[in-house]
Nucleic acid binder design. Structure first.
Ligand SMILES: [Zn+2]
Ligand SMILES: [Zn+2]
Ligand SMILES: [Zn+2]
Ligand SMILES: [Zn+2]
Lengths: 125, 125
DNA sequence: CCGAGAATGAAAACCATTGTCATCTTGCCG
DNA sequence: CGGCAAGATGACAATGGTTTTCATTCTCGG
């Protein structure tokens, strides 16, 4: 694992929310740990490919990343404002998706399920 | 409804798949109907706000739009390659989402559920 | 026919992300 | 110990989708 990867992973372990590459870069800079933006992007790519990070796009299309607790397949309840997330499993949905694959002539290779809202902290403010 | 909106809507009625703004612009140009790219973006925005179009982002983050048959709340089975889509309803999932909202302290205001794969035509090729 | 407000679109600005390339590091081998 | 090849790094430039700007062109009620 490279220096950039260690720095990024540490940052995302410290703050368990969905955060953008630019945010991570800024936070690392602020905390003294100096890593180039390009390296942050590369580290995020590598860690995500490696399954150590989950990625999702915000409504605006910006990619954000999170270090999840579970390495099982799961979905997220995400705060639109601060990126805070709850990991949820949805066996019933997985079943439904599998059945649908059988019904239609599609070769399914992925599915997304996300619940977007405001976490209690952001809703109160 | 403006001229651009009519042109875009006609194009999306003609080809019922998820298509990007740039694609729509190119197709309109090719078919003689000349509309500026800016106007295509504006029309897509307006039509989507108006509920006449469904929007989704491709894996690459590009926004795509589709004229759906149902104006009920529904989800999509989407072909990653050509944008072809099947509209599906998932009452069980809606129920599950509602329950989750009650369980956690999140103010839910949206959810996404998408099944991505290859349509039979693209899988065969 | 007039004028205000909306629509249009070419061009410039934006901005997240990716590519380039010259410079550093790192780990081996002689 | 050098020295060297492979990989990592990061400043900078380029990309590409999307949005802004702004001057021009409709549209339509009065
Ligand atoms: Zn996760
Ligand atoms: Zn929040
Ligand atoms: Zn739809
Ligand atoms: Zn297809």
């Amino acid at each position: 694992m490279t220096r950039a990867q260690r720095a990024v992973l540490a940052q995302l372990t410290n703050d368990r929310a969905f955060v953008s590459a630019q945010d991570i870069h800024a936070r690392l800079r602020r905390s003294g740990e100096s890593v180039g933006l390009t390296s942050v992007y590369r580290a995020l790519q590598a860690l995500t490919d490696d399954g150590q990070l989950d990625a999702r796009r915000t409504d605006g299309g910006e990619a954000t990343y999170r270090r999840c607790g579970s390495d099982q397949h799961h979905h997220h309840l995400v705060c639109r404002q601060c990126g805070a997330a709850v990991e949820v499993e949805a066996p019933a949905v997985e079943k439904w998706v599998a059945d649908l694959a059988a019904t239609h002539r599609y070769v399914i290779d992925a599915h997304t399920l996300e619940i977007i809202g405001l976490c209690s902290r952001c809703a109160d403010a």
